[in-house]
């Protein structure tokens, strides 16, 4: 039991981070506006969580110029995918096994 709870990643207690990882594991990449629309967030809120995820190494960022505008694409790293999957497994185990 204890080991199951240990797998719950404190880092993913934020719904926003969960949301970002959900999108990025399904899509190979997503840009800022798409994430914003999909998760219904403000610019500031989304940007700060993206930075946290990037610092943790769970997502990678790629900026490029499209004409004069910058387009920022976000990708889930392998590490991020694994961490997210472990977290989901732990959640499921907890709910099914914890009863």
């Amino acid at each position: 039991m204890k080991s199951i709870i240990q797998n719950i990643n404190k880092f993913f207690e934020s719904r926003v981070r969960l949301g970002i990882m959900s999108v990025l594991t399904v899509q190979d990449k997503a840009d800022f506006n798409y994430l914003k629309e999909m998760l219904n967030l403000t610019d500031g809120n989304l940007a700060s969580h993206l930075r946290t995820l990037e610092n943790k190494g769970y997502i990678s960022v790629n900026k490029k110029f499209v004409g004069r505008k910058t387009q920022t694409n976000y990708y889930a790293t392998n590490e991020g995918r694994i961490a997210f999957k472990n977290h989901l497994d732990a959640l499921e185990n907890l709910i099914h096994g914890g009863k």
Binding site: R15, G19, S22, V23, T25, V26, M38, L39, L91, I95
Partner: peptide
């Protein structure tokens, strides 16, 4: 614990819905 469980369950529901919306 019950409350915790509820939160986790809602997390899962939310994740499922986001994944569905962003994949189809």
């Amino acid at each position: 614990m019950d409350n915790e469980n509820k939160k986790h369950l809602e997390d899962l529901k939310e994740i499922r819905s986001i994944m569905e919306r962003s994949s189809s």
